[in-house]
Design a protein around this nucleic acid. Structure first.
Lengths: 254, 254
DNA sequence: CGGAGGTTTGAAAAGAGTCAAAGGTCGTGG
DNA sequence: CCACGACCTTTGACTCTTTTCAAACCTCCG
């Protein structure tokens, strides 16, 4: 079952589980803390959060951080790398529901039922901090600022999902891809990288899956945008992304 | 601005705001408590929740319980009636992101930014309990069971959104409507009504908007399902809904 | 350096959208 | 309480975007 196909779980592959202590790194010193759960926490709250986050996991490209159906007990915060989350229809069709970069919190959908509801697959070699949820909830009761952070993260996830629904329900193919690229560019910018030059971590098929399109449609749209000077593209490498031009083509959002 | 077009706010239309005390009703005695925030709370936790929920609001058909952009300070729990929530694209296109029946909690997407991100419009004369969020969060810190309920509700919302993304991204028109009807039937059943006989509270256009389809497509599909004996439909009245038959036509989910 | 997997492009098909028109229903005001 | 108007629904005919199928090429990893 899912248990065995999953990448390095704490119990099964201790080599890939890293004690935070060993690395002498903590949320309080993490360079992505302003993108992650610690946003807005003061020094004392951060110290308490340090006590919650005790391990990390390395996940190789293609491996799963979590599988739908797994028992839920921890959230994972992406530290390095990129993940995709996917939900499965009963007939086997799969929908990618998001791409998560550093700072994102994975597993929030598992709280409700006590089982993970989606797969999280690494798109490149990645690293995530493990947050035992019960422990986190406990600390959140004592630290209002952390409670607020957690509420905000859950709420932000809902807002993001609504934006994707809007894209899937109302935008045409060209608008969806334009919005997706603008969004990717902005997420790179938020992480201190150029918004207009980056490497796609996902295939055309994965972009299409996420946007409710076929891979051929995505490929044709890249060609069109390239022809029209909205970007330069060589395989997965995107250059000179014209954010404003694309925003106009997107009906302005994703 | 939005403020003035909104239905009966506490400050502006006290006539429509009802003190819970006056009605001598509480969460602890509410007949939908097993569909709402109180799920799984014990007597003592319920008593504390009673202290949070002090007012109700009546909202007439077509009026807004909340508007995108409004300052966020309260959640609302649907007591009677039905709402739709909609998000707006910058160019004015609108996507319905959900239909909420009794027990649903509205406003969760506003926690992140402190502003509501969607409109909530009553589809029939409705009534909602008002939950001041700061107060609720405070009580949740003291009452772990309530904290857990709140986390679960937020998480469940994320799960629901993912199912809609799956429908919008991967299902064909016929499958989307079939899944929608099965889902509606089951929600009626969960509320003690027949799963196969109900009145639609939304127009064909609204169903289409929610499912990423045009109203004509929805109308044609109703005719097709009716022709094939999967349901009987007279305007908004649906009878003899064949749940199993429709489930098969849905690729099995929504 | 060999092959699997990923990408591009074309041509044809299909599903859903658009436009149009007519009939139905509901709620409100007279 | 009835009539009118606004809005909703149905159905047909046609259009068009996107999918499907196919083939060739690329490229990157082991």
């Amino acid at each position: 079952m899912a248990e065995s196909s999953r990448a390095d779980r704490v119990e099964h592959a201790p080599a890939n589980v890293i004690s935070i202590r060993d690395l002498r790194t903590r949320c309080s010193r993490c360079d992505i803390r302003e993108l992650c759960l610690p946003v807005g926490l003061d020094a004392s709250a951060l110290r308490q959060l340090d006590e919650v986050v005790t391990t990390r996991r390395r996940v190789k490209r293609g491996e799963a951080l979590q599988r739908a159906g797994d028992a839920f007990s921890t959230l994972c915060a992406v530290r390095v790398g990129t993940f995709k989350t996917t939900v499965l229809a009963p007939d086997g069709r799969e929908q990618i529901t998001g791409y998560q970069m550093s700072g994102a919190l994975l597993g929030l959908d598992g709280i409700a039922s006590g089982r993970h509801r989606c797969d999280a697959i690494a798109l490149e070699d990645s690293e995530a901090c493990v947050l035992p949820f019960e422990r986190l909830a406990e600390v959140a009761r004592a630290v209002p600022a952390l409670q607020q952070s957690l509420h905000r993260l859950l709420s932000r996830e809902i807002g993001r999902d609504q934006q994707l629904m809007l894209a899937l329900g109302k935008l045409r193919a060209e608008e969806r891809l334009a919005a997706f690229l603008v969004n990717l560019g902005e997420r790179h910018r938020a992480r201190g990288f150029a918004a207009s030059e980056f490497v796609l971590r996902m295939t055309r098929a994965e972009i299409g899956n996420y946007l409710g399109l076929e891979l051929e449609t995505v490929s044709r749209l890249f060609s069109r945008f390239s022809r029209e000077g909205l970007l330069q593209v060589e395989g997965r490498i995107v250059r000179r992304l014209d954010i404003e031009g694309l925003r106009k083509r997107s009906g302005e959002r994703c």
